[in-house]
Design a protein around this nucleic acid. Sequence first.
DNA 1: TAGATTGTTAATCGATTAACAATC
DNA 2: TAGATTGTTAATCGATTAACAATC
Lengths: 214, 214
Amino acid sequence: MKNTKISNAVIKRLPRYRRYLIELRKKGVEKISSKEFSTLIGYTASQIRQDLNNFGGFGQQGYGYSVDSLYDEISAILGLDKEYKMVIIGAGNLGHAIAKYMQSSKQAFRVYGAFDINPALIGTELEGIPIMDYENIVEYVEKEKISIGIICVGGDTAQEVADKLSFAGVKGIWNFAPTDIEVPKHVALENVQLSDSLHSLAYHMNDIHKKTDR
Amino acid sequence: MKNTKISNAVIKRLPRYRRYLIELRKKGVEKISSKEFSTLIGYTASQIRQDLNNFGGFGQQGYGYSVDSLYDEISAILGLDKEYKMVIIGAGNLGHAIAKYMQSSKQAFRVYGAFDINPALIGTELEGIPIMDYENIVEYVEKEKISIGIICVGGDTAQEVADKLSFAGVKGIWNFAPTDIEVPKHVALENVQLSDSLHSLAYHMNDIHKKTDR
DNA sequence: TAGATTGTTAATCGATTAACAATC
DNA sequence: TAGATTGTTAATCGATTAACAATC
């Protein structure tokens, strides 16, 4: 595997490739050429080949790509052949929402516990997941070897939660708080800004009209 | 306002500018230069000026940008000075999650109804929002002038829901289904691929390790 | 072998950054 | 006026697309 710093644009496309490969597998398709894949997924054949060759030559000239093995390769590149233990911080609406969502996903990601500062919530359960005292989070993360923290608190406390999680040793933070947070270099960070996404939708809704008007 | 096709990269940054402007307003900051904004938000001063000038000259030479009016301008560009009526399709885990989330946001976006095909759910409520029969969605959207449909169904039915919503006349679709969908040109589409986001996090968690190893 | 399709290099395109003249 | 900072043009950088030789 080469390692000359893969661009983020490429990485963002990998899960999408993988999703389409799952569909193809379901349909019993065994091989696919970059050209066929192109019409399916909507990237150019050139881009598909370019993207995949960042990680190695997965294809075969004159034949194409094996759906099964390409799926396996991409899954491995993404690290989906591993298991990830997660905790949710913030057992309010958003935390509840994510807990529900994670439960219905049958992936290698599993939520082991939730944390809150609200005494009324501590000791209860969030969709079957125990809600514990936020005071004890560092201890818990260390002991249970939790690798991902899901931040579902309000924007004002998100940074302090991120600091604590990083200190406790998580390897990744999935941030749903409506704030940008900073993490040490060795901690991976992925932001889900739902309101940004909605605002972007609003822009395009109006933009489309402007175009129609011309 | 110029209209020479704003790149999507720019649009994706607008909500972020807006969030920082809200913070600045809270702190009572009245003006900000592109240079000061740069250190705060992490884009280059050049990019900030370039971005803003896509929409007009909001600044003043020798002074900078007025926080208040820049906030107003960006809000207007995004279309956040308007009201948006929404429906949720799919009252399962994900729909419930989004309903909760939308409720806690006090923005110009409001969910008026939810739809499902499950007879056990129809007639009940989802966080105070009535759950109606999916059969009647077109009629409802037309009558209530709903402008945004939030798709919270499984991947297998997402496209058919999108078709129905488009037919009924929504102007935007916020898609949480783990599938890519196609919509007519006049309908805006925003995808939230939570699993893609999580997979991208997994990649970076492992990628960071590779770097450490070298 | 001939045909197909990859892997990879070169060309193009677009987005970001730098520079600076305009102007408050 | 002098100083500061924008608006905008030009230069650079990176990502996408095209082309084609390598090879299954």
